[in-house]
Simulated scan of single mutants.
Amino acid sequence: MKIRYMLLHAYGMGGTIRTVVNQANAMAALGHEVEIVSVVRRRDEPQFRLDPAVTLRTLVDQRAGVRTDSLGRRVWRRLRGKIVPFGEYAAAYFTERVEKAAIAYVASVEDGVLVTTRPALNLISARRANPGVVRVAQEHMNLGSYPETLRAEIARYYGAFDAVAVLTDSDRRDYEAALPGTRIIRIPNAVHSVNQTPSRQEHPVIVAAGRLVKQKGFDLLLPAFAQVAREHPEWRLRIFGTGPKKAQLRALIGEHGLSAHVTLMGRTNRLDDELARSSVYVLSSRFEGLPMVMIEAMTHALPIVAFDCPTGPRDVLTDGEDGLLVPAEDVAALAAALDRLVADRDLRLRMGSAAAATARAYAPENVMPLWDDLFTELLHTRTAPRLAG
């Protein structure tokens, strides 16, 4: 079976990239012919390990820099593009050249399974892919987080797919309502391993991780942690990730007097080690798809404190058993939940043990066969009429 995965930037560090690379590696290990297509390339080497059997192809190499206009702004396209709408969060990547390269590649594929992994690429596949190819759209974000302009494009074009794969039951219900008659299937992302070193609950460290962007809500986490630090000054907060909000977050750290308590750790290739040496994981996002770093933290027997944001945390956690869910964007409630865990090691151990058990549902050996079965079924359905004739 030929399986092609299209990623915007396979050389990056995002959660979608990690999960798609894991999936590609698993499909290659099952003996399939697997290719990852990186629409753009801005780094020399991939950040996640690729199985040697997986082919990596780049459509537009941008390592020499991104073209800008006379005001220093990134050029999106000189004329409005044909497919990718402005409402897509990665629209700025899709210069005229990039969009044309993606369209040309999609149109050139003649067999096997083509998996696209974000709305921009899904829309290109829906509108330009060869109808003889099995097309699967992966959605890694909840439908309600998209602007209305993008939701309208999804409703208009996603019916062309053989299947649309979403991450949670909440997502499945939303996409079924928006796309009547289209096959919507829930397959969660898999963690890279559930056999991780458990936290011993010996270090007064809370961990958060993600891009330093508004979505991740670190501007809400800092004032919440400030309340915790006043009562428990020995505790520290470490935030892993990079992004455009770094300067704003540094300013907030200073404003709340947290310079000795909070560290912006930047990017790391050793997050598993950091999680094993911490005692609580906190998710402060305004919205999510399926928060994979949170689930990876659970594999280390870490209890979770999370905003009950759309979607993901409630689909994974049972409040009071493996973590604490608090109302979305409620800073005082987030502070109170953190304080509850910080003050009670026995509770952290009990919830951490339950979290590790919950995370086993996301083990590769449980998730990857679902993809293999789906692709096999779709290819059989596509070719069966020809064989019968």
Rank of each mutant, 00 (worst) to 15 (best):
K100C: 01
Y105I: 11
R80Y: 01
Y93W: 15
S108V: 07
A92C: 04
A102F: 07
A107T: 05
S125T: 15
K100M: 04
V98M: 12
V75K: 10
R118I: 11
P119W: 13
S70F: 13
I124R: 04
L114G: 08
S125W: 03
T116C: 14
I83F: 00
A91M: 07
E99Q: 07
G87N: 08
R77T: 00
P85R: 06
P119I: 14
F94N: 04
A91S: 11
A91P: 02
S108A: 09
R80H: 01
P119Y: 13
A90H: 12
G72R: 07
R78V: 00
E96K: 05
R128A: 09
R73A: 05
R80N: 04
R118E: 12
S108I: 08
W76K: 00
A104G: 10
A92G: 03
G87Q: 08
L71G: 13
L114E: 12
G87V: 12
R73F: 06
E96W: 07
R118L: 15
T117F: 08
A90T: 15
A126S: 11
G81M: 00
V115S: 06
A91H: 11
L71F: 12
L121H: 09
E96T: 01
A104R: 11
A126H: 09
G112T: 14
L71W: 14
S108H: 04
A92T: 03
K100H: 06
K100E: 01
E88G: 09
T95W: 08
E99S: 06
T116V: 15
T95K: 01
R127G: 03
V113Y: 07
S70M: 14
Y105M: 11
I83D: 00
A107N: 05
K100G: 01
L114C: 12
L121D: 06
S70C: 15
A90Y: 12
F94Q: 02
Y89L: 14
L123P: 13
V106P: 00
V75G: 08
S108Q: 06
I124S: 03
V106F: 01
P85H: 07
A120W: 11
I103A: 02
D111Y: 15
E96M: 02
V75R: 14
G112M: 15
S125D: 14
G112C: 14
A92R: 02
A120K: 11
V113M: 12
R73Q: 07
A92D: 01
K100D: 04
L121C: 10
A92L: 02
T116Y: 11
V84M: 05
E88C: 12
R128H: 05
A92M: 01
D69L: 02
V115R: 07
F94M: 06
A92H: 02
G112K: 14
T116E: 12
L123V: 13
L123G: 09
Y105L: 15
L79D: 05
